[in-house]
Simulated scan of single mutants.
Amino acid sequence: MNDHVSGITPTGSSSGERLKRKAGTLAAGAAGAAMLVIVLVAGMWAIEVIDYVLPVNLDAYGIRSWSPDGLTGIFLAPFLHAGFGHLMANSLPLLVLGFLAALRGLGRFLAASLIIIVVSGLGVWFTSSPAIVTVGASGLVFGYFGFVVARGLFDRRVLDIVIGLGVAAAYYSIIWGVLPGDPGISWQGHLFGLAGGIVAAWVLRRRRQAVPAY
Rank of each mutant, 00 (worst) to 15 (best):
R208M: 10
K20T: 10
G29R: 07
L92E: 04
L76G: 00
F99H: 10
T134Q: 08
A213P: 00
G189F: 03
E48Q: 15
P180R: 05
A200H: 00
Y172N: 06
G139I: 11
I47L: 15
S14W: 09
G166Y: 06
F147H: 15
W176Y: 11
L122P: 03
A82W: 06
G121V: 10
D69N: 02
G24M: 08
F99R: 07
D59T: 15
N90K: 00
I174K: 02
Y52W: 13
A34F: 12
P183I: 12
L80P: 06
P55N: 09
D69V: 02
M88D: 09
S14K: 11
A200R: 02
F79M: 14
L40E: 10
G73C: 01
L204F: 00
V133S: 10
A82Y: 06
I38F: 11
R151Y: 06
I132S: 14
R18A: 14
L103T: 11
S15F: 09
G181M: 02
D3K: 10
M44Q: 15
Q188M: 08
P183G: 12
K20Y: 06
E17Q: 10
L19T: 12
G7T: 04
P10A: 14
A28H: 08
A30K: 04
G121E: 05
F147Q: 09
R104W: 11
I63M: 07
I163R: 08
L97T: 03
R151A: 15
V149P: 00
P212N: 11
T127G: 04
L165T: 13
L179S: 08
I175K: 01
R208I: 14
N2P: 14
W125H: 11
V203M: 10
L106N: 12
F75M: 06
G29A: 12
I115S: 08
N2C: 01
S120E: 13
G16T: 09
S113W: 04
L153T: 05
G136P: 08
S186M: 04
V162Y: 12
Y172R: 01
I117N: 08
V211H: 03
T11G: 00
L95M: 13
T11A: 15
D182R: 01
A213D: 13
L54H: 04
A201T: 07
L19P: 03
R104P: 07
G70K: 03
S67P: 05
L179F: 14
L179W: 06
I185E: 02
A28V: 07
G7P: 04
W187D: 05
M88T: 15
A89W: 03
A169M: 09
S6E: 13
F126V: 14
G62V: 07
V119F: 00
D3Q: 09
R151L: 10
A101D: 08
L19N: 11
V119Q: 00
M1C: 09
G146N: 09
I185R: 00
I63F: 01
S113Q: 12
A111R: 05
M88L: 15
G181R: 03
A112E: 01
G166F: 10
V178L: 04
F79S: 06
S14I: 11
L58W: 06
G7N: 04
L40V: 13
G24Y: 02
